[in-house]
Amino acid sequence: MSALLEVQDIHTYIGQFHILEGVSLAANEGEVTVMLGRNGAGKTTTLRSILGLTPPRSGSIRFAGKEIGGLPTYSVAQLGIGYVPEDRGIFTDLTVEENLKIAERAKGDLDRKADLVFGLFPDLKRLYRLKGGQLSGGQQQMLAMARALVPDNRLLLIDEPTKGLAPVIVEKVMETIHQLKETVTVLLVEQNFFVASDIGDRCYILDVGRTVHTGAMADLERDEALVQRYLGAVA
């Protein structure tokens, strides 16, 4: 297993606030890597730093062996990194079809990926002509993930996909991410430890802008004290 994405000791500032004070992590090819941590631990900022939306001041970010720290966002995306943001990032004025089409990096991407996309998200076919703003939260989440699958992405950064969704939908979303593993590498941010533990291979825990724990998901599940300390997990 080689690391597709390697983040080393990045420090990111937002305005004058030092948000990330040394985050390191790696996402191995073909795995689901989970980033855990409390609210404000810096999980989303880490994803945004990888994408160049909040470029880190120091540290290194390597993707497929290439340094991508300092690249503009669109270049990072074009290298094959898809982003499914917490707010889903759907274009509300565009239809479902347009939302998917706009993600094409090469002409005909959507046609080539149709089987994959509609295999995972059959509902989208039914909603094809609706505007993004007319979809429910769960449907938007599906669309956001589908959109990230349209171009040939090698890595998906998925930020709290289950936030604000009904438990039934949460299960569905997690099931889908589990299936995604066959196609792409996933770096997943998830607050809900129990949801994440089902599908994660490796996990990182962030606390106040630092990586405080690294290990296999299976080991973390047994380490109740650690979970309690950093995640305050509810039993």
Binding site: L53, P72, A77, Y83, G89, F91, D93, L94, I102, R147
Partner: peptide, 24 residues
Amino acid sequence: SPTGRVLIAIRENEARAATIGYNV
């Protein structure tokens, strides 16, 4: 045109358009 769709996307949210790979 597809360019027009990208412009609408940019109007809605520049960062989103950039994370899809568009040079806003």
